[in-house]
Design a protein around this nucleic acid. Structure first.
Lengths: 338, 338
DNA sequence: CTGAAAGCGCTTACAG
DNA sequence: CTGAAAGCGCTTACAG
């Protein structure tokens, strides 16, 4: 059992020391308006001398406001945390939270069973709202949460038609930019290493790339799906080289896959960009440190994290006229790989 | 204000539906022993039919146990989150937490002012304990927290002599291994890019490296301090090349610095490892994807995260005979850069 | 094994 | 502007 030697002062003691009632002490502490200057000062002094700090649990129980939101990683926690994407999201969430007085509770679905408990936990009123980072578009969690009345905002477009606001990057335009860029670089046989078919990011980047190819009147030279990892990108590149040896331009739907692909190209004796131009997606640190540095479609991940947070806070505070969902712009960052 | 349409059932309703008193319902739900089979079943059914889930806030207020611990990043949040180190720690913490029924509250010191509030928040009993990741060894926070009676475990050896248990990698042995390896590879002019002087990780890796050099009867060919970043590593390497052009072996105290150094070496026309062998520290993903792949000293970051978590939980539960502090082993992972 | 009661530390109508 | 009182939803001695 816990054995904490520290007895924190309570509101009652503050009131006693200040010589006012508990109600008045509470009002003074919360900066309410109907408090005499004299009472306010007495309370302020009492708070300082006692080192009082309100028990947020008790406050929450009384106000039904927890002043905390959950960041839910609806993926196997051990996997998703390996992804630098997540750290960037977290930075954005942190930025969005700053100054709001809200705390962040981090929740992860460890397995299918935990998934259910997670939903229950969230719906039981322990947080004021939830940010759900759901990489798989068909995740049932967002819908489950939202239908319980919990304010929820998603990072990433859900695949199913659920009535939950989301923030995503403009993946489709990003894919289009990549295609246009490779065309502009004079590439004649352009292939893509697409993301998974069950993730919006995979689907949207591919459809955008297809649109870009069509706009340039080009026939795609090959489409292979992979899982956004370096190993997956490498395997996909091997497949592409075998099936389309003439390939001279590749759009990989993630930097990690692009790096894997570049490794395979190098091993196959293809020079980058002279023989094959490569474009990634994310504009991660990986893109800068790759050899050669990787042209990549930038998505503003930190901003996305910040946006979902602000959006959620607004929803919790019932601020009217919130846009239901938002796509943040993507842009192409040219480097030496193309 | 919050407008949540969901009225969660309370313990009172469960008791009413089950036809027992609130006390009995509570006991049944908490799996206590003196409950008749009949009562237990009635409560179980009531819970299921109502979809009841206990309000953890109220429970915490009554039990004085929050069932949550804080992970405190005592650095500027926006900076520390950029470091992959952090994500790995988080994975470890997550692993350590799994099955404990505890939640993780993520706290970051945004600025000096927030630093004080943070301490107050933590000491005010909102969490059962705190994990502090304090990269700067002279951080006052750990001491402040511990002296308030809050269970605290540190990740990383503190520089000041504070009475707080910590878990760290055996940085010193790691540095020694790096020195021995470079010697063994036949290097004659071995330099190091050390970490900052005010961080235990910087100090310990350097002292270990020195010990290794001494053991091999070698004079260090140069010591330059940098800040663990790629840019810092690059600058340090330039400095080393200028001052010790004969350098043929470099131990960089982080992979990031090693990558920066390799970039500079390449620009200077030095081949790796033929002209200069490079060893990093962390064995991060960066080490594997570097060109050439980087020899690096592995530190078990995930395990460290897991260890601090288990240690903290034990302390919260007042489990006796806990080791005060622990160093986890480091090992050298040889790759092509040396 | 069970229930009535007090208590955890706050907030907030309500009456003055 | 202020205080007494009720209430937030739980747990836990205490007496039976």
């Amino acid at each position: 059992m816990v054995e904490q030697s520290r007895e924190m002062p309570t509101l009652d003691e503050v009131a006693r020391v200040a010589g006012v009632s508990r109600s008045t002490a509470s009002r003074a502490i919360n900066g309410q308006v109907y408090v005499s200057a004299k009472a306010r000062e007495a309370v302020t002094n009492a708070v300082a001398s006692l080192g009082y700090s309100p028990n947020l649990l008790a406050r929450s129980l009384a106000t039904k406001r927890t002043n905390s939101i959950a960041l839910v990683l609806s993926e196997r926690g051990d996997t998703v945390l390996a992804d630098p994407f997540f750290a960037r999201v977290l930075r954005g969430v942190h930025a969005g939270l700053s100054g709001s007085g809200m705390q962040l509770v981090l929740l992860m679905a460890q397995d299918e069973q935990a998934q259910g408990e997670l939903g229950q936990y969230l719906c039981a009123g322990h947080v004021d709202g939830a940010l759900v980072v759901s990489l798989h578009g068909d995740d049932p969690l967002p819908d489950q949460l939202a239908s319980s009345g919990l304010p929820v905002v998603l990072l990433g477009r859900p695949l199913a038609k659920v009535d939950v606001p989301y923030v995503d990057a403009d993946n489709s335009t990003g894919g289009e930019l990549a295609a246009a860029h490779l065309v502009e670089r004079g590439r004649r046989h352009i292939a893509t290493i697409a993301g998974p078919r069950d993730m919006a990011a995979g689907i949207d980047r591919l459809s955008g790339w297809r649109r870009g190819m069509t706009a340039a009147k080009r026939r795609p030279a090959g489409v292979v799906h992979a899982d956004f990892t370096a190993a997956g990108g490498a395997a996909a590149m091997r497949e592409l080289l075998a099936a389309y040896p003439e390939v001279d331009g590749v759009f990989a739907a993630s930097d990690l896959m692009a790096v894997g692909a570049m490794q395979v190209l190098r091993e196959a004796g293809r020079r980058i960009p002279q023989d094959v131009a490569v474009v990634g997606f994310d504009d991660s640190e990986l893109a800068e440190t790759a050899v050669p540095p990787l042209t990549s479609v930038r998505q503003p991940i930190e901003e996305m994290g910040r946006a979902i947070t602000l959006r959620l806070i607004a929803q919790i505070n019932a601020v009217a006229d919130q846009p239901s969902s938002v796509l943040l712009p993507t842009e192409l960052v040219p480097r030496e790989s193309s």
